[in-house]
Design a protein around this nucleic acid. Structure first.
Lengths: 244, 244
DNA sequence: TCAAATAAAATTGTCCTACACTATTGCACG
DNA sequence: CGTGCAATAGTGTAGGACAATTTTATTTGA
């Protein structure tokens, strides 16, 4: 039925014949239009420049971004796959609005996955320069913690989690968590990060860091999960207006 | 800079969000071209009709599927987001090939997520018609188990897991797991599902089902994780040729 | 003969125009 | 005030064009 589709494998490609072309840095080249669009919209949503529920109209965006509809729609497909926008047939794209229930569901997932990441990070802390790298960031964070204002906390928090996931050595996990964090990122700016909340967060971090540096997977996982539960509670305390 | 972008909210749309969302209506209409393409390719990859590493050339596919490049490329973007294909700049799309390491990483993630699903399913087994629904499938599976050949086992296995995730009541989790299962699905057909392996699998299922029906979250999670570890071991036992 | 160099062919990335079809909006009418 | 219908906005898809880049085929030089 689809026998017309070429089944040829890329045999030639894997064979290293043309010695001439040393593959240059893949990521370094000028980004493709789709990549630029995805990046722009993603940042916009993350930072709240595009509000949940807001319609993203093709003609507006093609004009604003100086691209044609093709790449734009590709980008939207991609963003929809990441759950950042919602595409409805004949109705176009809207910035995805999460219900309180969905946020809870995602938090539950994040709890186990970030817990896993912490566990793995602790288990691998002795490998390579992991310990050194982790210590460096941790020291850096502690010097900031004193001045903690909400914004700085959120940024530091993100770096902390990102590093831990990276040290877990599980790349798919890193991608997945990035995907899960993005849609709820903006809530962090709405939670009134009271001085107490900030201190608790920092205490959580300290406990996590301690466990990871001690190479204690169980404790690291427990601490991380507790931390995630705390964050989830802050978000869940938001009024309904913050959702949808 | 992007102030030209229309910020108008869909006031009317968001207005009735209170109740909207439940009725799964829109799926019924005729599927859009992109949806058809995605579905076709996804099935093809899952079933192994498109081999890992194989190039998917636009002109071939547009002709074979009778669509134009636009929708096709949108579909590819989406598939890439799901990790089913890989898009390289100026080089097009290839069916993603997973390294052994990636498969291991994904298995690790699945273990905790499926474990979570089982835990939640057990916790919610008393709600609604969950118990009844679960029992029905379970009975059905047991009648098939006797005749177990590999193919039937794989299908039954999938239904079992899918139902459990659904009963977990965590929709994002369901989507995520579906996404994680697809790329490794094909490996199941390569593992030599020996009679022993089959029996073990069925024993695992029995233990999981028992725990869920008993409403014992801890035991359900433990059993499910063990089951996943067993599956992962089978796949990991495959020779290198099965990967890449 | 074999590999480097070069020409030719494929293939992708993007823009544009067009048009059918759906959804939304605005208005005239009852 | 609704209600129905026409006008308008916006999406879904096709198809043509072309530059940029990669892949394949061909020629050339040692």
């Amino acid at each position: 039925m689809d026998s017309t589709v070429s089944k040829r494998r890329t045999a030639a490609r894997s064979g290293k014949r043309g010695v001439a072309g040393r593959p240059r840095g893949p990521r370094t080249g000028k980004p493709t239009a789709v990549e630029r669009i995805v990046e722009e919209i993603r940042r916009g949503i993350k930072e709240g420049r595009y509000a949940p529920g807001q319609r993203l109209i093709e003609s507006d965006l093609t004009q604003a971004l100086g691209v044609s509809r093709g790449p734009l729609r590709e980008a939207m497909s991609r963003l929809a796959g990441d759950g950042l926008v919602k595409i409805e047939r004949n109705r176009g794209v809207t910035v995805r609005a999460l219900t309180r229930e969905e946020v809870r569901s995602i938090s539950t997932i994040r709890e186990v996955l970030e817990g896993l990441a912490a566990r793995l990070a602790a288990a691998h802390i002795h490998e390579g320069s992991n310990r050194e790298e982790f210590k460096r960031l941790w020291n850096e964070m502690q010097s900031v913690q004193v001045s903690s204002n909400a914004m700085e906390y959120v940024v530091a928090n993100e770096r902390f989690h990102t590093l831990i996931v990276r040290l877990s050595g599980n790349e798919p996990l890193a991608q997945l968590l990035d995907q899960l964090r993005t849609p709820v990122y903006r809530f962090q700016f709405r939670t009134r990060l009271s001085t107490d909340a900030l201190r608790w967060g920092n205490e959580d971090h300290a406990e996590i860091a301690s466990a990871i540096l001690a190479g204690d997977p169980d404790r690291a996982e427990r601490a991380m999960r507790r931390h995630l539960r705390h964050s989830a509670k802050l978000i869940d305390a938001l009024p309904d207006e913050a959702f949808g």
